[in-house]
Design a protein around this nucleic acid. Structure first.
Lengths: 159, 159
DNA sequence: GAATCACTACTCGGATAGGGTGTGTCCGAGTATACATGG
DNA sequence: CCATGTATACTCGGACACACCCTATCCGAGTAGTGATTC
């Protein structure tokens, strides 16, 4: 899985805690966790294309959450960064070589593929069942001081 | 996900259908689906290290299933090829930069990491719940002619 | 004739190159602000 | 003093290199079988 997924999730949380009043620039989001700013910007662009965050150029520009945290699932974020295609892609090797056999059963999907996709579906459902708000609430429970600190740090214009 | 997972699963099925009397060489397993033989050999080595297949060198050598299909889960095969580490790896960016904060809560795992791992656990459980025998049985139901054809083809010494 | 030995052919196993995708970086298009200027 | 136009600084967005890992390949270590040789 891409490194950017972790960055995107943490950045979304930080955006949620920072609030919608001001837009946060990619550079500041990156600085908060010592990440390469230009590359994090790339991930945020992907989130913007997916409609998870909204972007604004120019001074006072930056990123904001485009929807409420309750309406953003982890699946949305992962799909935005990783891309829409499945992790296991069936290349239909059963149709290649001497083992190809008769193509009567090719209408039915490959059994191996089906089994793998079933597992991947379970993964996707679990991700779709958790929203950004859920993760945010859990984080606030285990580390109560974090939200205020994040909000304060992003409110300061310096560093 | 690696291409080799698909190859490994199909090859395991073919080994199961071919039977244990003779060992099947990597070259023949590859030829059956028009795959690069040397590279499939690499995947079979991984399966051998994981104890899923047994290997024998020299003439009359090759690979056999080391356990009964009922005792090989899809998770075993995937873990053998993909490696043991999780797909989502938490790099603990919360401990980097100004956002590091106080390390009191670092004993608890990162909330983001926990959420992602929960989804991955669902994936792993689904894979662990399906054995090679299950997939084999389903395949035999949808394509009844396949087992006999596979067995016959691998019994013939000539291509 | 039977056993022993050397030889050959064949297979896995790990060490060795090439390509594609993820990772990281840079510069240009566009905008809100601040300032100077004129009415 | 107020409105207007201009210049400026700042941000995102996409185009451009680098590196690592997956893909693919090759050759050597080891073994089963075969045939010749010897007792």
């Amino acid at each position: 899985m891409h490194e950017g997924v972790e960055w995107a999730l943490h950045s979304c949380l930080n955006l949620a805690w920072a609030g919608d009043e001001r837009a946060i620039t990619a550079a500041r989001l990156a600085a908060y966790h010592d990440l390469p700013a230009a590359y994090l910007n790339k991930q945020l662009q992907a989130l913007a294309r997916a409609g998870i965050v909204s972007s604004a150029p120019g001074p006072r520009g930056g990123f904001r959450l485009a929807r409420r945290p309750e309406d953003v699932t982890l699946m949305d974020v992962v799909a935005a960064i990783e891309g829409p295609d499945q992790a296991f892609r069936c290349t239909e090797i059963r149709q290649q070589g001497p083992g190809a056999g008769m193509p009567d059963n090719y209408g039915d999907p490959c059994t191996v593929s089906r089994a793998m996709h079933r597992a991947e579906l379970a993964w996707r459902q679990e991700l779709a069942g958790q929203t950004l708000a859920d993760v945010k609430a859990t984080a606030e429970r285990t580390a109560p001081g974090v939200p205020a600190r994040v909000r304060r740090w992003f409110a300061d214009s310096r560093v």
